[in-house]
């Protein structure tokens, strides 16, 4: 082979162009194959749920299903709110104020995703070392604000997007 043949020639250009077009084509075929596994329109359509909360007594909670996952709705007593707010942020693995986990003026209503942030089990209410929730799977303790206090879970239980439609109804999602 002489050195002149190493120059970029017509054939090299054709190879590169063909590979590029081929790669785009392969990508265009692969993406639908991957994306078909994402939640479909029917799943996305279940994205909001309205809940009547008028019958919940103070100190009690209910569990509703939203997008296949449990949502805890708890009407907290004033003692419970005080307890949640007395906690120092330094004591929290995932520091977050109780005020930031509820809607302003609706401090008694804790609405959160009832899913342990470790590996997705449903924590049990009124259990654990912090008067809140306890996950039986791998032993995570949450407080009355749903914040992680002890155990392997990395973050506080998530607060979903929700709003008060009126004083007796909330819309989740």
């Amino acid at each position: 082979m002489s050195k002149e043949e190493k120059k970029v020639n017509r054939r090299d250009f054709l190879f590169t162009a063909s590979y590029t077009v081929g790669a785009v084509g392969v990508g265009a075929v692969i993406w639908p194959m991957i994306d078909q596994m994402n939640p479909d329109k029917a799943q996305q359509a279940l994205a909001t749920t309205e809940v009547d909360i008028s019958s919940i007594e103070p100190g009690k909670s209910i569990t509703v299903l939203w997008r296949g996952k449990p949502i805890f709705i708890k009407k907290r007593t004033s003692e419970e709110i005080a307890e949640a707010r007395a906690v120092k942020l330094d004591d929290l693995p995932d520091p977050q104020k109780d005020e930031d986990r509820v809607k302003e003026g609706k401090d008694e209503w804790l609405v959160m995703l009832g899913v342990c942030t470790h590996l997705g089990c449903v924590p049990l209410k009124d259990k654990g070392d912090f008067n809140g929730w306890f996950c039986p799977c791998h032993g995570s303790h949450y407080d009355v604000s749903g914040r992680i206090r002890k155990g392997p879970a990395p973050t506080n239980m998530e607060i979903p997007k929700f709003e008060f439609v009126d004083s007796n109804t909330i819309k989740i999602g």
């Binding site: 596994m37 997008r67 296949g68 996952k69 590996l119 997705g120």
Partner: peptide, 26 residues
């Protein structure tokens, strides 16, 4: 639930991967 949630430990893209595996939100 527990095994698929293992993938949610991956930083940044973990939750998207888990949702993709589920094809739903759980």
């Amino acid at each position: 639930t527990v095994i698929t949630n293992l993938f949610s430990a991956i930083p940044l893209v973990g939750d998207s991967i888990t949702t993709w595996l589920w094809g739903a939100y759980s």
